[in-house]
Structures are given as C-alpha cells and as structure tokens.
Amino acid sequence: MSHSASQGGQPPTTPRGGKVAVIGAGFYGSTTAQRLAEYDIFDEVVLTDIIEGKPEGLALDMNQSRPVEGFETKVTGQTTGADGGGYEAIAGADIVVITAGLARKPGMSRMDLIEVNAKIVRNVVENVVKHAPEAVLIVVSNPLDEMTALAAKVSGFPSARVMGQAGMLDTARFSNFVAEKLGVPVGSVRTLTLGSHGDTMVPVPSACSVNGKPLAELLPAEEIEALVQRTRNGGGEIVALLKTGSAYYAPSAAAARMARAVAEDAGAVMPVCAWVDGQYGIDGVYLGVEAEIGSAGVRRVVERDLSEAELAALRAAAEAVRAKQADVASL
C-alpha cells in the first residue's frame, strides 16, 4: 500500500491498494479507467487495447491529470497482440473489466453483435485466465447477458467471480427519466430493473419511489410504462443520436462503481448480471438481479418480494436469456 502525500502534504484518507485492469481502450474502456484512477483507491489501473500505442497514449494523458485532480493511482497502458503478447501487464489484477468488442451502429440490436463479440471476448478471457487467475471479472461487452455467460464458461472461474454490468446502467437511465419527468433531484429517485439488458428488461415498479413515495402514486401507469420503454431503448436512443459509437459516460460510471464495490468489500447491494441458481424459482442462468458484492465477487443474490406480474416477467426473461446463452456457448 502506498501512502504518498497528495498536494498540500495531506496523506490520502484511505490507503491505496490492488490492481484493476480494463481490457479495451475505446470510449467505454478509457472512461472506465479514468473513473477508476480518479477514485484514488487502487495502486494501479492497467488499460489494454489491440490498437498499437492507443492505451499507452491514453495512460500518459491520464497520468498527467494526476497533479490537477490530486490522485496518485498510476495508469499503465499496454498494447496487446493477437498472440496474447502484452497481457503480462495485467498480471495479478484483482479485478478485470472487459469492455472489448464492437459497439452498436444505428439500426443494430445488441444481438447483432453476438458472433463477432463472442470471438473477441473468448480470446480476452483466455488471456485473462493466464495472467490474472484470481481476478473478479466484470463483463460489459454486448450482448451483455450472453457475453457474461460466455466469459464464465471460458474462464472456468467460480460463477461468483464473473458478473456483468447492465442493471446499474438501466436503473440509472430509469431514475434519470423519472427525475426529469417529475422535476425532482435524481437523488430522491429510487428505481430498479431486473431481467436482461434489452428487450426482456423487467422494471420493478414496486421498488420504485420518489422521496420514499411509491412511483405509482405520482405518475399514471401509462406514463411509467412510457419511461420504462424509453429505458429499454436507452442505448439505442443514444446510438441513433451519435451515429458513430454508443453510450459510455453512464455505462462507465456503472462499471467503475461495480469494480469499486469489489475493491471495498463492504457488501454493497446493486443490480448486476449474476448467476442465478434457485432464487426466484429460476435455475442455472446469468440474469439481472440484485446482488451483494464483495472482494470475491457476488456474495449472494438478494431476493426481494416481487408482485406476481414482476415475477412472471423475470422468469420469462430468464428463459429468453437461457436460450441465447446456450447458443453463444458454441460460438
């Protein structure tokens, strides 16, 4: 643990420790690395990419922001080769965030990316296993639920150590839309989505509130449904506006927060894509649920009381995802 004093001679309030790696230095990966570095809780953040020089250049730039932002975490950039060369930079990482893969273009669904991203994720995971065999994996590549299942299969890691980022992002989008609709601070809004990232996303109205008041008392059902639909299409709406590339500010915030929850080992409860084995009467599938997160990954899936309609929707989402996860295993 390093205890170097920050500017002004004040030692940091918490000791820094551990190493986190981000695979893929596109907008999503580089922004995630920046957020992780600025937390100032890690010794080192490693950023890798297959585009020669890109991760090194971004790391140099981020390190030069340290005196301004007042953090000491070191950022290391490393180009990786098709043969796995360069992955030694992630050796011993405690957490690995996998952002590698193609982003969506306008008119594409997340599922359209499945074959090309399956090959990329498989290759990345094989290299991670070689160099960081004890790491907790956080997968963000699309289609999310399927790539998380694939990463678990390829890695052979205990399922608790492999999770996907989707629920944090979907609830953030939902909360933001509710706050804008009602003209209230985002901090007063609590929402929850479970299920898959995409068409079978399951909003949980019974868990949604504003300043502690049930959302259903503040908005008519059809307006809540419209916000849910906008949340389901949240990524697509951004892709259509950007025309090149997809969302990364909110997604990277969500992924970084999950990595922080692992690092802090405090049992934070958040919606993530996790292995469900019996909870909600659902068996053997990666699915968006609430989970308690610690240094070894998912400590436990947190089951809440769902309405019959919510539970039915979650079970339907599980079956839809299960079929696709079986397909992806063969890619």
Rank of each mutant, 00 (worst) to 15 (best):
S295K: 14
V204P: 00
A91H: 11
Y249P: 05
F177W: 06
L241Q: 12
D43S: 13
V20A: 07
T76V: 15
G164L: 10
V125Q: 01
F42R: 07
T200S: 08
T31F: 04
A259Y: 03
D265E: 05
P55D: 07
E290V: 03
Q279H: 12
S141N: 09
A103D: 12
D94C: 04
M147A: 07
V121P: 00
G288Y: 05
L137Q: 03
Y286F: 15
N142E: 11
Q229E: 15
I138A: 01
G92K: 06
E180Y: 07
V189T: 05
Q325K: 10
N233Y: 06
Y249T: 15
V121L: 14
I23W: 01
S209E: 15
G235L: 05
A216T: 14
E310G: 10
V302G: 06
D277M: 10
R304E: 15
P220Q: 07
G167I: 03
L102H: 13
N117G: 06
R299A: 06
Q229C: 00
T171N: 13
D283T: 12
R230G: 04
F71P: 00
V285I: 09
S4N: 11
G236V: 01
E146M: 14
G26Y: 01
S109V: 06
K324V: 07
A93T: 07
E217S: 14
W275V: 04
D61I: 03
D49H: 01
E225R: 15
D305I: 02
V262H: 03
A5D: 13
A329K: 11
L314V: 12
G195K: 00
T231P: 07
Y28H: 08
P251T: 10
S307D: 04
V269L: 05
I138L: 15
V129F: 02
G198A: 08
I238Q: 11
A152S: 14
N142K: 08
E237A: 12
Y39H: 13
G294R: 09
M168H: 09
K213G: 01
A103R: 04
G8E: 14
P143S: 09
R190G: 01
R110T: 14
